[in-house]
Design a protein around this nucleic acid. Structure first.
Lengths: 131, 131
DNA sequence: GCGTGATTACTCGGATACAAGATGTCCGAGTTTGAGCGG
DNA sequence: CCGCTCAAACTCGGACATCTTGTATCCGAGTAATCACGC
């Protein structure tokens, strides 16, 4: 079990956008270069963030991706859920949701999600700009 | 990102062994039937638990798998680590361990592991026998 | 100067290729139990 | 009754086969800014 590279790219891209915060959209190429990933693949991932309402895309020349309003409230968990989906990490195959094992696993997962929900990208950006 | 089916099988098998607690080893076939999985595949998974020192295997007729000493201390995390490995869920590809994003992700993961570490199979078995 | 059209620089989405890991099967080898058989 | 052999019931481990998912590329289509040109 591993977080996908896509999640890695998405988190880093969001952090970059939050740190930059220009009104101008930033092109996929520029975003992709920083992370050494192909622009087309990154674009695919960012489409998920667009559908989740975190960023918006601008077509045409000087196009790219830009933060949307409430960007200061975006948490790690928001981004991860947009990329990885919101399904729980563990499904008991035989017993379904009544399974005690499953209940414990989901409780543990909740602990992790709680931490990720409280961690906002904008907070992290502040730390960086202090350095 | 998902926990593998193998983890599901391993957790259920361990719970079954803890609830049963006979000195006699229990055959793979019996264990596999309960979970509707092929014996050979389950055997592969249980081999990992053997190497991790949680159970031991007995060859020959009336052979099978049996709990080892300190079985009362076995936690969910022990089992999961034996099956899934101990690598962290998130690796920042570009920046390595200094990456702030990675640090937050690992901190979140720690929260989940802490919960799983405190959850012992023997405790869960008690709850079941009460019902 | 000003509209109009062409060019350019982009993103979007689907189709497709590729790789890796999870899942599952097969089989030969080794091991223990227990039954059968001969002394 | 004892000991030997042999068959049966197991696990073990490696080598495959298969399936799913993540990763990545390619290309045609659409869109917005900018430039060129003609009036």
């Amino acid at each position: 079990m591993k977080y996908s590279k896509a999640t890695n790219y998405a988190l880093h891209t969001m952090l970059y956008l939050v740190v930059a915060t220009p009104n101008k959209p930033i092109g996929v190429q520029q975003l992709a270069e920083r992370q050494e990933v192909s622009p087309t693949y990154l674009s695919k991932i960012l489409t998920k963030l667009v559908k989740a309402g975190m960023i918006e895309s601008a077509s045409g020349a000087n196009g790219g991706y830009r933060l949307k309003r409430n960007w200061e409230e975006i948490s790690f968990l928001d981004i991860i859920h947009a990329v990885e989906g919101t399904a729980s990490l563990f499904d008991c195959l035989n017993h379904g949701p009544e399974c005690l094992i499953q209940k414990e696993m989901i409780a543990a997962e909740e602990k992790m999600e709680e931490h990720l929900r409280n961690q906002k990208m904008s907070e992290l950006a502040k730390k960086i700009s202090m350095v």
